[in-house]
């Protein structure tokens, strides 16, 4: 009897193997926290908060009143000073989309993006017909630059962690360096890691 128990223990220990992969489709706005790290929900919350905040302030109407057109914004550097490898482009893209769709802001290509555009324009100069060619020197200059950073504070003790994220975005006027809008979103999480696993 004892031997059977021992053999059962040994066998069960040896035959531990993963089950097959199971995939379940879920809504994109459903919150699923697996590791406690920055995830799509955090990115979405930041984008939503920042968009609502950016559109609720008068910098767009002030500019439109003075210049007679919607302000052109360029995305500058958004630096990741956090403890995690965060894809900043997701919430910046969300913000771009919402602000452009609001009709109150125009975005121009960032320094990373415009290289390819300019290359294409040079190619058009050589290869496109006169009627469809886009000339150089007609780009829209940006009026404001969006800059920002993500910072975190992690306090860990044993299996428990408190993770605090702070996202700061700033819109700076390229004409005179004035900061016309400052957005901030804070997220705090308490993460308890498992002490025991199977």
């Amino acid at each position: 009897m004892k031997m059977r128990i021992y053999l059962a223990i040994i066998l069960s220990c040896l035959l531990v193997s993963g089950c097959g992969t199971k995939v379940t489709r879920i809504e994109t706005n459903e919150t699923v926290d697996l590791s406690g790290a920055w995830n799509d929900t955090d990115s979405r919350l930041v984008a939503e908060e920042m968009i609502a905040d950016a559109l609720s302030h008068p910098w767009t109407s002030n500019f439109a009143g003075q210049a007679g057109r919607a302000p052109a914004v360029i995305v500058g550097t958004v630096r990741n000073f956090s403890h995690e490898h965060i894809n900043i482009k997701t919430f910046v893209a969300d913000m771009e989309r919402a602000l452009v769709n609001s009709g109150r802001v125009v975005f121009v290509a960032s320094s990373e993006e415009r290289g390819e555009i300019r290359q294409e324009r040079v190619d058009q100069d050589l290869n496109a017909s006169e009627a469809t060619r886009n000339a150089a020197g007609q780009e829209t200059g940006a009026d404001f630059m969006l800059q920002g950073q993500i910072n975190t504070i992690v306090d860990a003790e044993g299996d428990e962690q408190v993770r605090y994220y702070q996202v700061d975005l700033t819109l700076i006027s390229l004409a005179d360096n004035r900061k016309v809008w400052i957005g901030q979103k804070k997220i705090k999480k308490f993460v308890e890691n498992a002490k025991v696993r199977y």
Binding site: I9, S12, C13, V16, D159, K195, V196, R197, Y198
Partner: peptide, 8 residues
């Protein structure tokens, strides 16, 4: 995390 099966 401590594994029950691996410790066994």
């Amino acid at each position: 995390a401590i594994s029950v099966s691996e410790n066994l």
